[in-house]
Every structure is written in structure tokens, then in C-alpha cells.
């Protein structure tokens, strides 16, 4: 084992994990503001408030961190970690460019990635439970319900890609990619992206943390750095889901001059998708909890199943 190589890769992933979410966060601040006719943060760091999130971080680190009396203290403390770490782990499996530009190629990549994603959401659930706050618990349960409802379409849509490529490895899928997969897997892409959005509890699927109903859901009792970590997890999640969608459905590093600029294509596609995530937050009103469930079971799951059938037929016919 080449330790140096491994160290570099791990370090790179860690850096990406710390930087990309901040970028997305900043983008969200500014893009949302402009869409709403505001300008957003302007002061921190000078140029268009570029260091706003850094400042936020510093502030969070200094804030007092209370744990409610009735809480299950150990679990309460662990929850942010549980929410955050899986996204980091996922990042390592996402290929950035061709020929091994990936943290680590994992055999059953799709499996691994989806499994890790599922763990991340557990952070919210245990946070909600450990808080001993009825709103937090309600939020946690909604989270759980949402996780369960959207995990299935997520899996099915991913399975569709795996069928098309005949492998579960992410680099393997990209190696097999052809441009016409984009229209072929379009429905799957929609399902996957939407479901991913819902898993992250991003608007319009943010009923679990709907401030107007249940304060801040599972995170109600959190403050200070722990809260910051949850936020970080959310944005890291956006990056991961966008990146995965890009890799699975949009061809990842495929594009002109992909030999040299593959990594750029991946980042670009991911960035665009991140923007779509932010856009969705501004564009759509929040769905009710029941609407969220219904949407998953009656729209996404059937769509995903249909996509699988379609993929299978095409694959057998052409293969």
C-alpha cells in the first residue's frame, strides 16, 4: 500500500469536504438573495461578503452550547457527528475524473454510497429522539418517514443505472457511459435527484424542520458548534447528492477534452445541480408531510419501476 498516495487522497477529500459546502452555502446566500431582490451578505471579508460563512463559523464556535435537562446526553452529543461523517465517507468514492481520479474505487460503489447516505439521515433522527423535546421528536419522526419513503426511489433509480452499465462500481459506470444514456435515464435522473433532495430535507421537502410548525425539528435544541455541524452536513449533503447525480446520470467527467479537463466537467455539472437545489428552495413552497409521502409512493416509486423496466427492455434489445 502506498501510504503517501493514500494520505494525499484522504487529505484531498477532507479539503473538498470542507471547502465545497462552504461554497454552496455562500452561493445559496447570494443567489437566493438576488432571486428575491436582495443583495445578501456584503460585509464579511469585503468583496460581496465572501467570508460570511467563515464568520458564521467563528461565531458558532464561540456560542454557548446547552444540552437540555431531559436529554439523553451522550446520544445528543453524538448526533452531529453521525450526521456529518457519512458524507465525508461518501465523497471518497465519487470519481472526479478518468483514470483513477477518485479517492478510492469501491467495488460495489453504488451500494456503498447509498448505504452511507442513509446513515447520514440517521443523525437527524437520533438528534430528534435524544432531545427529549416533542417538536424535536416529531421532526425526527418526519425525517425518518421521509428517509424511508425516498430511499426506495433512490435505490431503484440507481439500480437502473447499474443495469445499464452492468456494474456497481462508480468509475465502472462512467467508463461505460454513452451520451445517449442521458435521455435514456432521464426519468431515473429526475427520480434520483428529487429523492436525494428529499433525503436532505431540502425545500420543498423540508417539512421535518419546518420552522413555522415545529420550530426547527430535530435541531431545535441544538446550538453553537453542534448546530453548525448539522448545517455543514446539510450543505455537504447537497454537494454529495449533486455529485452523485452528475456521475450517475449526467456522465460525470465525460465531455469535450475529458482526458485533461474531466475533473472540471464533474465539478461543473455538480455546481449546476447545486444551483438547481438552491433554485428549488426559492421556487417551490413547502410540501406538507402527507404530500411528501404521497409523492414518494405514488409518483416516484412507480416512475422508478417504470424506468427499470424501460432500461431492462432497451438493454436486452440492444445487447
Amino acid at each position: 500500500m502506498d501510504w503517501l498516495d493514500v494520505a494525499v487522497r484522504v487529505l484531498a477529500v477532507l479539503v473538498a469536504f470542507l471547502v465545497l459546502p462552504l461554497l454552496v452555502g455562500q452561493l445559496e446566500h447570494k443567489a437566493m438573495a438576488h432571486m428575491q431582490g436582495r443583495v445578501g451578505p456584503m460585509h464579511a471579508g469585503g468583496f460581496h461578503g465572501w467570508a460570511q460563512l467563515v464568520a458564521d463559523g467563528v461565531k458558532f464556535a464561540q456560542k454557548e452550547d446547552t444540552i437540555p435537562d431531559g436529554a439523553d446526553r451522550l446520544i445528543f452529543r453524538l448526533a452531529p457527528g453521525v450526521a456529518l461523517v457519512p458524507y465525508l465517507v461518501v465523497l471518497i468514492a465519487i470519481p472526479l475524473g478518468p483514470d483513477g481520479m477518485v479517492g478510492q474505487a469501491v467495488d460495489a460503489g453504488i451500494f456503498f454510497v447509498l448505504a452511507a447516505l442513509g446513515v447520514g439521515v440517521l443523525g437527524s433522527l437520533i438528534a430528534g429522539w435524544a432531545s427529549a423535546n416533542k417538536y424535536a421528536l416529531l421532526g425526527g419522526l418526519r425525517t425518518a418517514a421521509q428517509l424511508m419513503a425516498y430511499e426506495l426511489p433512490l435505490l431503484l433509480a440507481a439500480a437502473s443505472v447499474a443495469m445499464a452499465a452492468g456494474t456497481l462500481s462508480l468509475p465502472g459506470i462512467l467508463d461505460a457511459f454513452e451520451w445517449w444514456w442521458v435521455p435514456w435515464q432521464l426519468v431515473g435522473a429526475f427520480v434520483f435527484f428529487t429523492a436525494g433532495l428529499a433525503e436532505l430535507q431540502r425545500p420543498p421537502f423540508d417539512a421535518p424542520i419546518a420552522p413555522e410548525e415545529i420550530i426547527f425539528g430535530a435541531y431545535t435544541e441544538y446550538s453553537g458548534l453542534r448546530f453548525a455541524l448539522f448545517l455543514l452536513a446539510e450543505y455537504a449533503g447537497i454537494v454529495v447528492v449533486s455529485a452523485l447525480t452528475a456521475v450517475l446520470f449526467l456522465g460525470g467527467w465525460h465531455g469535450p477534452w475529458s482526458d485533461q479537463l474531466g475533473w472540471l466537467w464533474t465539478l461543473l455539472k455538480t455546481g449546476v445541480l447545486c444551483f438547481v437545489v438552491i433554485w428549488a428552495r426559492v421556487a417551490w413552497p413547502r410540501l406538507r408531510a402527507d404530500q411528501i409521502q404521497k409523492f414518494a409512493w405514488t409518483v416516484l416509486v412507480p416512475l422508478a419501476l417504470a424506468q427499470i423496466a424501460f432500461t431492462g427492455v432497451i438493454k436486452v434489445v440492444t445487447g
Binding site: V6, G81, V85, L88, V89
Partner: peptide
């Protein structure tokens, strides 16, 4: 390697 990353995360 994956485990290593997880450790790093923790």
C-alpha cells in the same frame, strides 16, 4: 482507505 477516511472524519 474508506475506514481511514471515516476515522479522519471522526
Amino acid at each position: 482507505v474508506v475506514g481511514l477516511v471515516a476515522v479522519v472524519g471522526v
